Amino acid sequence: MRGIHHVAIICADYQRSRRFYSETLGFPVLNEAFREERGSWKCDLDAGNARLELFSFPAPPPRPNRPEACGLRHLAFVVADLDEEIARLTGLGIAIEPVRTDPYTGRRFTFFADPDGLPLELYEADPAEADGQRWEAGGAL
């Protein structure tokens, strides 16, 4: 295995989520298609070293809302300047949790939610990460 290719997200309101991820968070749209046979939209977004895939499906069940439910816990995005990104998102009316510091890496991070309540994290990069290098568990790959 060589890395993460994409993360797929099923949206309750496709257009709302598309605007959130492409306009609010700033991930460029790479491709978008309506899949007639499924009655479903699919949008590929460029998230740097991976892609985000947004899907619409008729009447998807809600996501379990327990902090430690089994499955994907959250999706984290690396940012060069945490304070700057927090100011930008709060300026757009997005609620951000208080900033915390990872006791193992010393890096600062915070959480917010997408339009469907999916927990998203902002993780402040160290200088090497901010320059676009790939990292794993605090060390370079």
Rank of each mutant, 00 (worst) to 15 (best):
M1K: 06
R134E: 13
L89S: 11
P61K: 10
V7M: 08
D81E: 13
M1A: 06
H5P: 02
A140M: 01
A113P: 01
P58N: 07
L52W: 11
F112E: 05
D126C: 15
D83Q: 10
D116W: 07
W135Q: 08
V7N: 05
R19T: 01
N49E: 10
L75D: 04
C70E: 12
P103G: 12
A50P: 12
D116Y: 09
E124A: 10
A113V: 13
H6Q: 05
L120I: 05
F57K: 10
A128L: 11
I86C: 05
P61Y: 15
W41Y: 13
E97P: 03
E53D: 07
G48V: 04
D44V: 04
E37D: 04
P60N: 06
R107L: 05
G48D: 03
G26K: 11
T110K: 12
P103E: 01
R134A: 15
P127R: 10
L122K: 04
P60F: 01
E129L: 13
I10F: 02
P127V: 12
G39D: 02
T110G: 02
N65I: 02
P127E: 13
I86A: 12
R107S: 06
T101I: 14
A80I: 03
E97K: 08
R18W: 05
I9H: 02
Y14H: 14
Y123A: 02
R63M: 14
G26H: 07
G71A: 10
F111H: 07
G139S: 11
A125V: 11
E68T: 05
K42P: 00
R16N: 06
F27P: 09
D131V: 11
L54A: 08
R73W: 14
H6C: 03
E32R: 14
F111I: 03
G91K: 13
G117W: 14
Y123R: 13
L118Q: 15
P61I: 12
A59W: 12
L120F: 11
P103L: 07
I9F: 03
V29G: 05
A33P: 05
V29A: 06
A33S: 03
A50K: 08
I94N: 07
A80S: 06
P60A: 05
G91C: 14
T105P: 09
N31T: 04
G138R: 15
